[in-house]
Amino acid sequence: MTHRPRPNKLRRFVARVPFMLGVGLLIFYLLFPFYWAIVSSLKTSNQLFQTPISYLPVTPQWGTYLSIFTTQPFGRFMLNSLLVAGGTTLLSLLFGVFAAYAIGRFQFRGRLPIYYTMLAVTMFPSISVLGGLFVLIRSLGLYDTIPGLIFTYMLFTLPFTIWILTSFVREIPMELEEAAFIDGATPTQTLFKVLLPMIAPGMVTAGLLAFIQAWNEFLFALTFTVNENSRTVPVAIALFSGTSSFELPWNQIMAASVVVTLPLLILVLIFQHRIVAGLTAGAVKG
């Protein structure tokens, strides 16, 4: 930039105004819907259905947040979601790390076909297995259970986890593993003592993405459960949509929405760099 004559400060500032306006508009666009959910959750039913619309919560009604737990077993739904997402994440990581180690580090016939099959499974339309999976979990006695959901969620979390972890395993220098081998470590010991500490960031990334996917999943949860005892939060929020859209308790729906979204947002804010790295690695390396 040094070879150009510098415009004076004021002109530079003026030139940047449209740009900064664009940035402001962008932030508004990205964040306003969530802001609106919070504002709506803090209104009473009367305030919700009032014109002109007020853009601030006039008298914040925190009671709405209590009411979603008392008018229905929302705590139970949260627990179910937590169990399903947590179980799916842990199992995906456990099986995924072995598979990723095998694909990333071992030479054997069929390695690449397996790797590409895994890729293909992530692109798979889950609707095309819905019927077959329904029959399968019915006959296994897993219909309408939390283990049943965990089991079916492996369809999309496991290949994705293996994929991310494989790319991390490949980046570890071979020498470390060779040293462990010379010291007489078994492959399992090498995996857990040498590789695992080094792919820990990859585990966090893959685990977070698997957790978010499982936490947000709707189609399987809607199809493979009927009871409140196994209902997850997305289904509960979808089922708020009752008889007609005029009677919907929008403040409760928004309160429930904020409650399920906040844990995710906190996770995302803490781990944002890892998540971005995982998302882009997953997509760019494809």
Binding site: L30, P33, I212, T261, L264, L267, V268, Q272, I275
Partner: peptide, 18 residues
């Protein structure tokens, strides 16, 4: 990352109300 992290069901309900 905010719109990305919000569950699809939740964003649908949020926008339905909007």
């Amino acid at each position: 990352l905010v719109p990305w992290a919000i569950p699809g069901v939740v964003s649908s309900q949020m926008w339905r109300w909007m």
